[in-house]
Amino acid sequence: MTEKLPDKIETIITPISLEYEYTPGTASTIFLRGMKQGRILGQRCPVSGAVYVPPRGSSPTHGVPTEGEIEVSDHGTLRSFTVVHLPIPGSEVSPPFVAAIILLDGADQTCLHVVSGCEPSEVRMGMRLRAVWKNRADWDYSFENIRYFEPSGEPDVPIESFRRESSA
């Protein structure tokens, strides 16, 4: 025994590797099929009428299945945002970048996406946005067919008009 052993062992590394095959579910399947065709599809709550995009299969406020295939616009309004200065583990997006809460025209539920195509300092609440899609040939069953949103040049929406808990 010539090897000198440490007095204290603080760390052992135990690699853990598990593989999962995820199921998007029937509602997300509608959305992902739409993405493949360059369309943004949501579903409607049969009780409140609210349109959920991307749909997750249930109306969270009423606990009932959402219905139909409702196409919404790829234009929307920026509700709020942050400029992120940290890298996201496992993402190709490099900081600083703008992560925004966006309400698409025709939808009642906000979604999260990246805003680009302008300086972060120009980004503001109420700003109008439009989707920038990947090349048609690269469309997959993925929300990431939309590379990011960029300013559309339409006039801003007054922030005071944002609704809260009204349509629930």
Binding site: Y22, P24, S28, F31, L32, P54, R79, S80, F81, T82, V84, L86, I88, P89, G90, S91, V93, F97, A99, A100, I101, L112, H113, V114, M125, S142, F143, E144, I146, I159
Partner: peptide, 30 residues
């Protein structure tokens, strides 16, 4: 990393808890 795991079928812009809550703070300030 555990909080930023890529969620299947979603856009991967999840930059930890701070990235999630910062837009809410901005709205509060406004």
């Amino acid at each position: 990393w555990a909080l930023s795991l890529k969620q299947p079928f979603q856009v991967h812009v999840n930059a930890g808890a701070g990235g999630y809550f910062a837009p809410h703070i901005r709205e509060y300030i406004h």
